[in-house]
Design a protein around this nucleic acid. Structure first.
Length: 580
RNA sequence: GCCCCGAUAGUUCAGUGGAUAGAACGAGCGCCUCCUAAGCGCUAAACACAGGUUCGAUUCCUGUUCGGGGCGCCA
């Protein structure tokens, strides 16, 4: 038995040629039917048929029993040239398609679109602004922070693939009491390096806990910046830039790309805050409390609960809170006028983002759309910086690359060292990106070092390997893959057919994933596709095919599968090596 | 205490208002004179619990339990 691709065929905008004739045939048979009444399913097995039409909703409209209707439709409707037979099975009509003919259409569509195959173009002419990662500049990023970067980066790639014009922003949190404390400690250490920052940060926080006077100096630093002390500002800048550079080095290794770095410190003493405050005052939502803080009462803006009702903008000493600067940053992003304003945030920011949204909207500023993600947990519990129980991205990448390097050097000893290293790095990146991205953002990712390093089974390297096998076939063929010809295209085995169906589903996956801003769907689709290809690979010899028509058809299938896999991998930010 | 997420094989993840709930890892058994064994085939194994809506619920609703996150001067 071969693996079956059980997804229904593509419908709607990305419909392939064979879908419409079937709908038209049904509507011609019964003019009272509308296109929406006709749904498509995958039958439980390929033996029953290639496409199933459930009769439930049509039967309801016609006031007939579904099974009776199925009999009638299977017997009487002429489905056209793409359908070779129709059979009723209970409440379903199962159609068998003309595989050669449909296979030709699918393959031709893929090869024609090539690197664009699967993109629906729903984003053409629309601009997206996305902000993600925005890690506090205080340590080398661990996989939890990386989840934000990987999700944001992949959503960006997904939307670009759909035709959106996307600009990526990274908010540099170069302000705040904790940065102040870090600066104080860093000052004591001559020439602090990126790798020492985390220790300094931990030290700073510990000292602040034990020593109120030291803690107070953190606030004092902030107040001085707000008062315009350029010397302190310079000190902050030195530490945060050192940190940012170190972090970006790791993020770039992952393939994350950013267009703009927006600094929080640019929003200190922004005069536009007065405009927002005025809007809040007009709604009776802003007051000064008994201790002199400026506080927003969100219940005046429609917030329903007591918890989280109050939102502090300024401390009693007049210095601004994080959210205060963030409001202005949000205003800036809003003013860039993108059609879609996105941000990727950890679920710990849910309440905060809700509060921000209420304030922004009260001031007439549309709040951004948020993609939330849950934390990454380790197989033995939560990550803990203090216990040293974190997986740093750079550590993971180093280990994974070392393993992959060893492997590829054994496999292909003659390749130049540069290429060895490049392949190893690509495999390492694919292992982490795939492991994290394949899980829906709302679920915790349980990260297990051992299985992430195994490269076996449902992993990024598995999909890359699948591509490497295809490339190997195409390399041995050594000529351009001929264009498909309708009369001679052959796809009569189950495994070829399963592969074709899997490829045909790609545009729908992309459209849905883009609409839901969910790359996990792309990752899981890719596994199905890779499995389908591997089934084909094992059952159908390509280069030793007996006749030329079959040889060409299979080469075309290989080329089409490679386009589909590479396009999908590209969305997840994963490159495919020529060999591995 | 209150609010928001989640719960599917031993484990990590998919999936669906309707035909037999899919993979992978792990376990057991097989497969490299054959386009890359980072692979393939076979076997065993799951919808947390209780109600409700429905012709039909693992899927929708409510409650319980468990796990994650949050709840005014952190960012």
């Amino acid at each position: 038995m071969i693996k079956e691709y059980r997804s229904p065929p593509v419908t709607g905008e990305n419909a392939l040629l064979y879908y419409e004739p079937i709908v038209n045939a049904l509507m011609a048979y019964d003019p009272s039917l509308a296109a929406e009444d006709i749904a498509f399913n995958a039958p439980p097995s390929l033996e029953m048929g290639d496409v199933a039409i459930p009769m439930f909703s049509i039967a309801k409209k016609r006031k007939t029993a579904p099974a009776v209707l199925a009999q009638e439709i299977a017997a009487k409707v002429n489905f056209g040239a793409y359908v070779s037979s129709a059979a009723a099975a209970g409440p379903y009509v199962n159609l068998k398609l003309d595989r050669n003919r449909v296979g030709y259409e699918i393959t031709r569509a893929v090869l024609k679109a090539g690197t664009q195959w699967g993109g629906g173009g729903t984003g053409k002419g629309k601009r997206v602004l996305i902000e993600h990662t925005s890690i506090n500049p205080n340590a080398s990023p661990h996989v939890g922070r990386g989840r934000c970067a990987m999700i944001g980066d992949s959503v960006t790639r997904l939307l670009r693939f759909e035709g959106y014009d996307v600009e990526v922003h990274y908010y540099v949190n170069d302000m705040g009491r904790q940065i102040g404390l870090l600066v104080l400690v860093a000052e004591e250490l001559e020439g602090i390096t990126f790798d020492e920052i985390l220790d300094a940060y931990v030290t700073a926080n510990k000292r602040a806990e034990e020593d109120p006077e030291f803690a107070a100096r953190g606030y004092e630093m902030l107040a001085r910046i707000e008062a315009g002390d350029s010397g302190i500002k310079e000190k902050f800048f030195r530490v945060t830039e050192l940190c940012l550079k170190g972090q970006l080095k790791v993020l770039q290794r992952l393939g994350a790309q950013y267009d703009f770095f927006d600094h929080e410190s640019a929003y200190v003493n922004d005069p536009r805050l007065a405009v927002i405050e005025e809007a809040l005052e007009k709604k009776g939502a802003l007051f000064t409390d008994e201790d002199g803080r400026r506080v927003v009462d969100l219940s005046r803006l429609g917030y329903p609960l007591e918890e989280g009702r109050y939102f502090v903008l300024r401390r009693a000493n007049g210095s601004s809170m994080y959210g205060c600067r963030d409001l202005l940053y949000s205003l800036d992003k809003h003013e860039r006028g993108a059609d879609v304003n996105l941000m990727v945030l950890g679920e710990d920011h849910k309440l905060y983002a809700q509060q921000m949204a209420l304030i922004l909207e009260a001031a007439g500023i549309a709040a951004p759309e948020v993609v939330y993600y849950s934390y990454i947990l380790l197989s033995d519990g939560k990550m803990s910086t203090r216990q040293g129980k974190v997986v740093l991205l750079s550590d993971f990448l180093d280990q994974a690359a070392a393993l992959a390097l060893q492997r590829v050097m054994e496999q292909f000893p003659d390749l130049p060292a540069d290429e060895h290293r490049q392949i190893a790095e690509q495999v390492a990146v694919s292992a982490i990106r795939f492991a994290v991205l394949r899980v829906k953002p709302t679920k915790n990712v349980i990260f297990d070092m051992e299985s992430a390093l195994s490269f076996q089974g449902d992993t990024g390297p598995y999909v890359q390997y699948c591509c490497a096998r295809i490339r190997s076939i195409l390399r041995k063929w050594g000529r351009p893959v001929p264009d498909p010809v309708p009369e001679t295209f052959i796809a009569d085995t189950d495994s070829e057919w399963a592969l074709l169906n899997a490829m045909a589903a790609f545009p729908k996956v992309i459209t849905e994933s883009a609409a839901q801003r969910n790359c996990a769907q792309v990752a899981n689709y890719m596994l199905d596709l890779a499995h389908a290809f591997t089934g084909f690979y094992h059952e159908c010899q390509v280069l030793s095919s007996q006749d030329e028509a079959r040889l060409h058809s299979r080469l075309q299938l290989c080329r089409a599968a490679l386009y589909t896999l590479s396009n999908a991998l590209g969305i997840l930010g994963i490159d495919t090596p020529e060999r591995m």
